[in-house]
Amino acid sequence: MTEMVWGFPITGNAVVDTLKCNFRSDELWHVVHMDVPSGMASATALNELREKMSGGPVEMVTAELCEALAGAPQVWVLDIRLASDNAVQLYIEDGEVFEANLNHA
């Protein structure tokens, strides 16, 4: 895993860079919760993700998740877990990383 130094604010691009460095584009994620303001680059994909999440958690691959988060000015809340290994997770709350275990086999 590439070690990530999380600054403040945590931007969508910081999350995207971390995911792209550590995971294949086709790996499946459980997106449990998300609260992210739109950025210019991600508005359409992020809005589509919000719509999907209106019914609860969703599953999506790394590439789709990165597309939605790209350009977001800040990540307020994000709770994602790798579908193949729930111990691999990223949990951001109130703009701070609370849990980051991005190591996987």
Results as ranks from 00 to 15, higher is better:
A68C: 12
R24D: 14
I10P: 04
P37R: 00
D79P: 00
R81M: 13
N86Q: 13
V16I: 04
M40Y: 01
L65E: 04
F8I: 05
E59R: 09
L65D: 06
G55F: 00
I10L: 05
S38G: 01
V31E: 11
L90T: 10
G7Y: 09
E93S: 09
V15K: 01
V32G: 00
D17S: 15
W29E: 04
T44C: 10
C21Y: 06
A14C: 03
V32L: 13
M34C: 07
M34L: 14
S84W: 14
E99W: 01
V75M: 14
T11V: 05
G39K: 00
M53G: 00
D35P: 03
L102Q: 08
C66W: 04
D26L: 15
L28G: 05
T18M: 14
C21F: 03
E27I: 11
R24F: 14
E99M: 04
V88D: 04
C21H: 07
R50H: 15
D17E: 13
E27P: 01
A43R: 13
V15H: 05
M40C: 01
F98T: 08
D85L: 08
E96T: 02
N22W: 07
A105H: 11
A72N: 01
D79N: 04
S84A: 15
A100V: 04
G39V: 03
L90S: 12
I10K: 03
P37E: 01
A68E: 12
M40R: 02
A105C: 08
A72C: 08
D94E: 10
S42A: 08
H104M: 05
V36P: 01
V36C: 07
L90K: 07
A83Q: 14
R50D: 15
W29M: 05
N103S: 05
Y91A: 07
V15A: 03
L49S: 02
V77K: 11
A14Q: 00
D94A: 08
D35V: 06
T18H: 05
F23K: 09
L82S: 09
P57C: 08
H33Q: 15
A83N: 11
W29D: 06
S42I: 07
S84V: 09
F8S: 13
V75H: 15
I80P: 01
G39Q: 02
G71K: 09
